[in-house]
Design a protein around this nucleic acid. Structure first.
Lengths: 187, 187
DNA sequence: GTCTATAGGGCGATAGAC
DNA sequence: GTCTATCGCCCTATAGAC
């Protein structure tokens, strides 16, 4: 056993979610989070670039899930089909996490804080751009790739909001599919 | 002549754009901006909530332009048509500003700074949500309204990127129309 | 780990317009 | 006198530098 307990990153992320929920994001200082995790403030900034980033630790996995599924889509799938497959796959990951109400608690914290919404939108936008590039790698025209990726992203985002904010009977992947169908139904 | 010159807000916004371009957003302190505008740091924060917000002074006008045009769309227009009309109208405003290369200078500053991109995405997202509500006011189903608004917003965003970043011969409203057409063409 | 600059909020004082 | 814009000086927390 070393001088410090392992898993500082996980303890910091856990402490942050709890404190951001109560007493709240703005009421919580980085020092509070560090203290609860049993490390110093400096250690927090070693793991996370800023106070917001601690809520987005899983976002790389999400992005990779989207990109992998896009690359794995059938070669004859349309741009929108491939993009949809990407976000549906990632929706499955989110839904099947060990702690089933973690995404909802996290979403509630973000919904209550504009500065966290900003970060979330930037992360999603990054995923959208990466998805567009993945579609281009499949031979899709650049402008069509961007439009298809953004449309699928919008469907995902709306699906996620429906999923967390209500007693929707549908699962997240099904809600994503519904969003895609509604894009196709636009006239 | 009073103790202070009028138009502090405009001077602050002008000074900020210049300094954010050179020496750069991160290299510029609020004190620098205030000094150039001939006021104190404290006055800057009276006009703008934070260092980023000074770049988004016109965003309310943009939003109002979108909403007004949506409300003015023909009663029999589809949800996507009405949303498209909103963003096309706002695109016209942007293109026909007094200083023709202001939008490009501003876009260059934002493109160089992730924290400004975050704010831009939040502003756009707010416009998207407001547009969805405006569509609902026209009798559109809530989910369809969100999807149509997000799709039109995505078309606008892509159009704007094409417009600023290249030697596109098309004007901004035409690029928005092209984006909408490409959404309709998705299969 | 320590030190420091900057963001950004609180609050009372002040100078002008009316 | 009131109202409003600005200022000055206080403070803490973030986040980067050393």
């Amino acid at each position: 056993m070393g001088r410090w307990e392992p898993g500082a990153r996980e303890r910091l992320a856990g402490a942050a979610i709890e404190l951001y929920g109560d007493p709240g994001y703005e009421q919580t200082t980085v020092a509070d989070i560090a203290a609860r995790a049993g490390v110093t403030e400096r250690t927090f900034f070693r793991y996370f670039a800023d106070k917001r980033e601690v809520l987005f630790a899983g976002s790389d996995l999400f992005k990779e899930g989207v990109l992998t599924a896009i690359a794995a889509a059938p070669a004859d799938a349309s741009a929108l089909d491939a993009a949809a497959a990407g976000f549906e796959a990632a929706a499955g990951f989110i839904q099947n996490q060990p702690d089933p109400d973690f995404p909802r608690r996290r979403a509630a914290v973000i919904a209550a804080n504009p500065s966290l919404q900003e970060r979330e939108l930037l992360k999603l936008s990054t995923v959208g751009s990466a998805a567009a590039r993945a579609l281009q790698d499949r031979g899709v025209d650049p402008v069509e790739a961007s439009i298809a990726a953004q449309a699928a992203l919008a469907a995902f985002h709306l699906a996620f909001e429906r999923w967390v904010s209500s007693d929707e009977p549908l699962g997240l992947p099904a809600l994503v599919r519904d969003g895609i169908a509604r894009i196709r139904a636009l006239r």
